[in-house]
Design a protein around this nucleic acid. Structure first.
Length: 283
DNA sequence: CTATCTGTTCTGAC
DNA sequence: TGTCAGAACAGATA
């Protein structure tokens, strides 16, 4: 379930560790997890790490790029000297041996450190791409929430074309807004006080403003706590995030609403996905 | 044991 | 063109 805050947390963690390192080997344990020619990355150094939507990109010194999509259960974990190093000190609160049965790819750097790509369900992937191919993929995504382009005006302009769609499917549409998934959309709509089933055409200006602000607040909170570890997500050192302790509705079906209304969190299905909400706090 | 659920994205049908 | 079911896959839960 890694969404924007989780991917951004992994990106920041990896940046501290692997910028400038040279890839000397890649072991492909699961062929479908790696798409491209491995010869195009061997001997190259990692120059930059970026994030667009839920994707992590690595710019290489030879003109190629690595692009990762973790989908539902992907992990990127860096190991040096058999230890997960956090701020210069070994971190011992990880929970998986490496490699393990879910390890799909193992990158080895010149100093012997390794980057493990784990993915239980094998939906995720790593691709080797040229700059042009990478740019074309990135151009297919909508606005990044943490840019000045993410405004009420932008939302209204997009909503005008599909007035009949509900707000939940609108916010999770990657071609409209990049990086929001099932957890953060439910949390954002709870904070905004808007039911996920509401049609775009029926939303008031005040509600659009509330939605715009709430999405940013919730994503920022996710970043602050290093992401949500519902089950598979871990950061670049294999350590879980803390945002799951601050979720108001997600996976809280039947539990008391934390909005102070005295009600109970409900669950429904929208677009095939579990949707959590408070029928009292959200209108 | 079987059936169902999970949640991201792509594909194909209507 | 929009919408929606189904698929990719593995494991937890009922």
């Amino acid at each position: 379930m890694p969404e924007l805050p989780e991917i951004e947390t992994i990106k920041k963690g990896l940046a501290k560790k692997i910028i400038g390192k040279e890839i000397v080997d890649i072991k492909i344990e699961t062929t479908k997890s790696f798409q491209g020619d491995k010869e195009n990355i061997l001997g190259a150094k990692i120059e930059e790490i970026g994030r667009r939507a839920k994707l992590i990109s690595m710019k290489l010194s030879n003109g190629f790029n690595l692009l990762f999509h973790l989908k539902l259960t992907g992990q990127l974990i860096y190991v040096e000297n058999g230890e997960r190093m956090a701020g210069g000190h070994p971190s011992h609160d990880w929970h998986a041996k490496l490699p393990n049965t879910n390890t799909r790819l193992i990158f080895t750097f010149k100093n012997g450190s390794k980057l493990f790509f784990n993915d239980l369900r094998k939906f995720g992937w790593c691709k080797v791409l040229t700059d042009i191919e990478l740019r074309e993929i990135f151009e297919g995504y909508g606005v990044e929430p943490f840019t000045s382009d993410f405004t009420v005006d932008y939302l209204l302009r997009k909503a005008k074309k599909i007035p009949n769609r509900n707000i939940k499917q609108f916010l999770t549409d990657q071609e409209i807004i990049a990086g929001i998934g099932n957890i953060y959309v439910d949390e954002s709509l709870f904070l905004a006080g808007v039911l996920p089933t509401r049609k775009l055409r029926d939303l008031s200006m005040a509600e659009w403003q509330k939605i715009n602000v709430s999405v940013l607040k919730v994503l920022k909170l996710g970043l602050k706590y290093g992401g949500t570890s519902d089950r598979d997500y871990v950061n670049a050192l294999g350590v879980k995030g803390g945002m799951q302790n601050y979720l108001k509705v997600y996976h809280r079906v039947g539990q008391p609403c934390l909005g102070g209304c005295g009600g109970v969190v409900k669950r429904m299905t929208i677009g095939g996905r579990g949707t959590h909400y408070c029928p009292t706090c959200q209108k």
